[in-house]
Every structure is written in structure tokens, then in C-alpha cells.
Simulated assay, not measured.
Amino acid sequence: MIVPDRYVKAGNSIAGGMGEVHACTDRHLDRKVVFKVLKNGEENRRLLDEQKALLQLRSKHVVQLYDVVEVVDGDIKKPALVLEYIEGGALARGQYQVGYEFLEIIWQISCGLSEIHKAGIIHRDIKPSNIVLDKSGVAKILDFGLSRNSGVDAHTISAIGTPNFMAPELWSREAVSFDKSVDVYAFAITSLVLLKGIIFPGELLEFPPRSLGAHGLSVVLRGIPEEIIRLLERCLARSPADRPSMIDVEVLLRKHLLYNKHRALLVVDDKLHELHSGAAVANIIINPAVSISIKYDGLKFFVSALSGLIYINNIAAVVGAELPACCVITIKVGNSRKFVTFDVSNPEVLS
């Protein structure tokens, strides 16, 4: 293969399902890159779909497209994608045990998919081999050869994808339209596949897959927070409309990864009070008849006790209500009002 003068081949080619991947060096920027070229006889549309998707994406968890060039393969000129070179390996089946590291890696995948969907793209082939972990431990989603624009060309007349990772609606013998929820389903299957030593639910191994029974993942995912188990079960719902968005998935995983790491500040009469795992309850007592208690359970801040007329952002407070990350608590005392500001810090999950 002959590449443009700016680049020089830096390794052997690797044949994939739809094309060949070549390691090259960008001599202008002195960095390694990857050339992706279709095999002879493959439709160029597959490559162009990937190009179209990647041009719209800028995410830490999605492989970056640098350029589109023309190469000469034999006597044939072909377009090629110049992609980010990722020094690392693809995720593998059974790579993780139940625990923080597993939740952190699927959170990273959910971040990438959230960005992909935000750009209006359906990946359509999410699976471990299409997710690479770089040397810094950052997961990156690649291979957009089956991707489609959401709502524009999201339809198929035959089952295309990887069996076991394909949502039930993709198995129809007739023309079907699909949406981002096919990626949500594949994300949940990928999450299960990454775990070591689990007994895979038999319903999900059939073609097409059947619906899970009630609490179908409780035994399989023992040791994972119940709220996350229920969410993954929803991701595997037979009806696309019953699956959550990837943003919902990312938010919930992030919340659990930050367990006991949140801090909140309350300002009462110009005095600053801090609420965190080491000081999990704050009591604001105006008089014996008017008070509010706020508690931190490691995941959220909520009203644990209440008396009198108290409002949170102008909405009447009730016991059990979760406080927004930034709000004003208004306490009515006779004909007057007292204001308490409440702010939650924004810790980040590092990847």
C-alpha cells in the first residue's frame, strides 16, 4: 500500500472484518497514527459511515479521526481514515471481577456512548473487541463501520451486527427501523461479558434473545449495588422504549463511583457548615416548632426530618426529598423568612 508522502508505514497491517488497519507515522507532527482502508470488494459506504460519525465526535472515550486521505492499493485508489493511534489492547471477555474497577470501566464506556448519542450517532456494534483500553487506563470506543445517523438512515433489511450483542428488534426478517436503544442493549451485554465467572442468563443466548425473568440479573451480579442491577435489567428490556438513555446510565454509575466522596456547604446566618461522610447529618433548628434535618447517605443529600413551613427552591419540602446540587432553603418563621443556601461540590470520577 502506498500512503501520502506525509506518512510512512510503521508496522504490519492487520486484517479486520471489513478492512485493513496499518500503523503509520505522521512525519509532520511526529506521532503514530492508524490508517484504516477497506478490503478489495468491500463497499466504501462502510468507511464513509465511519468517517461521517467520527467527524462529529470529540470525546475522551471515542477514537479520534485526524484526516481522510487517498492511498494506492495495487492499482486501485481508495479512501483511508487517519485515526488516533491507541497504545493498548481491546477489552476481553471475563476481564473483570465484580467491584469498583468493573463499575469504573463500564462507566467509561457509558461516557463514550453518551457522547456518541449526543452527536446523533448510533454505533450499532458495541462489544468488548471494539473498546480499547489505552496505557493510561482510558477506555476508547472504535470501529464505526456499522454506524448510522439517528433518525435519518437508521434502518436495516437484514440482521447486521454481532450475535448476542444485537437487540431483539434487530432480528426481524422484515425491514426495521432502530434507534440509540440498540446501543443501550449492547452496552448491558458487554457489561455482563466483561465479568469473570458469571453464569450468563440463558434467555440472552438465544437468537433472537428472549426477555429476562423478574430480577434476572440479581444472582449473576451479586455484589453490585441493587440500583445498578435494576438499571442493567432495564437496558436489556425487550421493548426499546423501556430502556434508559445512556446519559441516565452514566449518571447513575457516576453517583455510585463517588460513594461517600460528596461534600455540601450550608450557609446559615452567615455561618458555614460542611456536610460529608464524616459529618453526615446537619440539623437546622430555628425553634422547637421549626426545623429541618439534612442527611448524606453516601449517594445523595436528602431531608431526613422536618417541622414547620420549609421550601426548597420554592417547592414545599417533604421528608425523603433529595436536595438539588444547588438550592435555597426558605424557612418561614411567623411573618418572616430565613434563607439557607445549599451547594454540593462536584467531585469527578478519574479515568
Rank of each mutant, 00 (worst) to 15 (best):
E226F: 03
E233Y: 03
P209T: 14
S172C: 05
K32C: 02
A317R: 13
G197C: 04
K338A: 04
N149I: 04
F342E: 03
I131R: 07
R31W: 05
D179F: 02
F301I: 10
K180S: 13
F102G: 00
P208C: 10
A167L: 10
A15C: 05
S345K: 14
L146C: 06
V68F: 08
V132S: 10
R230E: 07
R124S: 09
I116L: 07
R243Y: 02
I329T: 01
L47Y: 05
P244H: 02
N40D: 14
V63C: 08
L272P: 00
I122S: 10
C235Y: 02
W171Y: 15
E87L: 12
H155L: 10
A188P: 02
E50S: 10
K338Y: 06
P288M: 05
A15Q: 14
V72A: 01
V268K: 14
A317K: 13
L253F: 02
S239N: 14
N287A: 03
G334S: 12
Q97N: 12
A280E: 09
R46P: 00
I160S: 05
S136T: 06
R148L: 02
S114D: 09
G17M: 09
I157W: 05
K295I: 00
I228L: 15
Y185K: 11
H155V: 03
V33E: 05
G88D: 06
G145P: 04
K52N: 13
E70Q: 14
K196A: 06
V176T: 09
S181Y: 05
A321Q: 15
E43L: 14
F187N: 05
I106M: 03
T341N: 08
A264S: 11
E274Y: 12
P208L: 11
V34P: 01
L299F: 09
D143L: 13
T156A: 11
V68E: 11
L29P: 00
K332N: 04
L221D: 03
S245I: 01
C24V: 15
V71A: 08
N149E: 12
G151F: 05
Q64M: 15
